[in-house]
Design a protein around this nucleic acid. Structure first.
Lengths: 234, 234
DNA sequence: TTGATGCATTGCGAATTATCAATGGAATAA
DNA sequence: TTATTCCATTGATAATTCGCAATGCATCAA
């Protein structure tokens, strides 16, 4: 995990303004003068799979914009059971809740090596107070989060585990080349609320029947038509 | 379903400003001058259990603040399966998504007779543009929605159906007098992602073992300690 | 009161999923 | 190369949940 200061205040400003993924990021709508409101450095950090960004209950100092990679947000039950409630990808923001509450509400863990912009909470709060151009982006982020949560409830937590795995694979597939990078069976199970073994059995079955072709390293070729049928069955 | 215009523009304004539940409502932080920005009537509507506020895909003309009663937000799967993704109660807002998208994203149905404030989308959009005092409330609403969705994923869609029913009953219980108003077994099942029969069996079992005491009309006395144990078991 | 209606409950067999334990296979380090 | 380690897969069995049909129960209207 390497940390590279984009900057002291001024050059941090300069870099955000020219960020390659700015059109996807929280600061998409900011104008030149807005960037002058940023008086704390925004760091670009790299994290490896397995690294933790923050834990539930930790004091929320930073928000994170995902530049690349995948982050999982996890919550635990009293009995120790865990559930992955959301996946964050390029352009998504982790830790939005610290604008409303002092602490984080999830464990944020890197699922695939990630590059992130680490933004001090103060910076976002100040921009939120002083320029209206951040508001729409913030509302959009919240909306996206609710939408994903609702989809997970209806699509990934309803029906037989077979259809649910199928829906998850479809959701993780690149619709252009039908390729699909999966996660460990344990993580897939934690997304779906089923056991590791059940997930494994179903994916193995998909491979046997040709719905998935194994390309190695958890990379698959997906037969989306077939999977869609399974997804709709039950 | 009776509709009573609070007003032409001016008296609508006046009434919102003096609303009995304003401290809970979307307009909680507005100041006197902000109310003058409201140039369309806000209607107070009464709906009976079973009435529908709007459907998924409908053009989103209104937001609704719940004054009393309970509203369910439902999504459907292609195979016809349905899932209740959220319950709205006093102070909650239905239809927030129309500030971001043109159409509603759920079916909103009255679960218990409800009184609602029907607010034209334009009104909220204008206030959102012209007064910063609505922003925090909007962010808060979104945050609440995400939080409830996440809780439903971890608590109501994880573990055995018995623990899930127990967690749901606890969540629906009045912590002061341990009383609990349930819904039809079908609705409870749609909240938990299990069948009506399974839900019914579990609640019947709770009654037999004394975790719930039936007071008639889906009103129960809950033994929260016992239920909590069941909730944590598995 | 008497039906009629709409739910809730229950029984039972089938299907699904969990659980525990063993085996297999691929990637990595020595 | 050879171990080693970490997962994924599979088997066997138990437990849970579903699906369908029958029955019970309370409410409401005639």
């Amino acid at each position: 995990m390497e940390k590279r200061a984009i900057a002291n205040a001024w050059s941090g400003v300069s870099n955000c303004e020219n960020c390659g993924i700015r059109h996807l990021a929280l600061f998409a709508d900011l104008e030149h003068t807005d960037f002058e409101l940023i008086h704390k450095p925004i760091m670009e950090v790299e994290k490896k799979a397995g690294d933790r960004l923050y834990g539930e209950g930790d004091e929320g100092q930073f928000l994170y914009t995902v530049r690349s990679g995948v982050i999982k947000l996890t919550q635990y039950l009293p009995d120790g059971g865990q559930r992955i409630v959301r996946l964050l990808r390029t352009g998504d923001v982790a830790g939005l809740e610290v604008l409303v509450n002092p602490t984080y509400e999830h464990y944020a863990t890197v699922l695939r090596d990630a590059e992130l912009c680490q933004i001090p909470r103060d910076v976002v709060e100040r921009l939120n107070r002083e320029t209206p151009r951040l508001h729409n982006q913030l509302l959009n982020r919240w909306h996206t989060a609710v939408k994903q949560a609702d989809e997970w409830l209806t699509e990934l937590s309803t029906g037989s585990s077979k259809s649910r795995v199928a829906r998850l694979v479809i959701g993780l597939s690149d619709k252009v080349d039908n390729s699909c990078y999966l996660f460990s069976r344990e993580d897939l199970g934690a997304i779906l609320g089923v056991t590791t073994e059940t997930t494994s059995r179903i994916i193995a079955e998909f491979k046997r029947e040709g719905s998935l072709k194994d390309l190695g390293k958890n990379h698959f070729l997906a037969d989306l038509v077939r999977l869609q049928n399974i997804a709709n069955e039950n």
